[in-house]
Amino acid sequence: MELFTNQVLAGIATGAIYACMALAVVMIYQAIDHLNFAQGEMAMFSTFISWQLMQWGIPYWAAFVITLALSFVGGIAIERILFKPLAKAPVLTNVAGFIALFAIINSSAGLIWDFTIKQYPTPFGSSPFLGSQLISTHQAGMIGVTVLLLLGLYFFFQYTKIGLAMRAAASVPESARLVGINTSWMIALGWGMASAIGAIAGMLIAPVVFLEPNMMGGVLIYGFAAAVLGGLTSPFGAVVGGFLVGVFENLAGTYIPGVGNELKLPIALALIISVLVVKPAGLFGRQIVKRV
């Protein structure tokens, strides 16, 4: 039983990483209706910017705020410059665009900061949390930040005018335009926010997985899986999905013989797919009603 509790705790700790990433994925999915394959790379690039700022002697929290602002602007710029012209192109062409963006960011980060692994500081310290060996203060802090972020987003979408406008633009663009919402800028705003949330995720993940251009590869896959599991329409679902995936993965690695590290991912994915076969819109997703 103790092994079980410990593994669940450890799973929740890794799950916090996935939850953060899943939140960013859901944000952008709400805004543009696509899964952004370059999301992880954008987050990685933001994290590198914050690292660079700290190298120049700027304190952590100042660097944090500057990076958020830069990422927000960067996200909007990417949408305006690269993806707005593709708005009318077929969906699969857009997906190809994401892959191209992925390649560009990954390779530029490699050229600017090279591929060596870098240490990344944590603001929470890394001593054991409340005497537990499994969760460090950093991981506890990460869970705390994820929950705060979720609450913040909830209030933003439910109780502010812009949040309402963004929801309207995402669900019924035409009607939203008719009541005077600038849907095009709402999409850009969605990109900006997703980029900023991704930056937070990146800065929280970097102390755990270390900073390097390929650090997000694995994390993004889990983030997607978490978002899809929780339901792509629900930020709350994405966070729950993130924790579930973390726990699944750990338990599968512990209890199924012969799984080990390499098969963890396929098994977690297989489990998620079995859930989806039963509940195709994800655990907390809205069932989309289609007009025939």
Binding site: P90, A96, A100, A103, S107
Partner: peptide, 22 residues
């Protein structure tokens, strides 16, 4: 050599801008 990924991405973007239907 160092930026091969970025060059590939830019070329891909060029193709999908010019001919979105391939």
């Amino acid at each position: 050599k160092g930026l091969s990924g970025a060059v590939f991405g830019v070329l891909l973007f060029a193709v999908i801008y010019l001919v979105p239907h391939g």
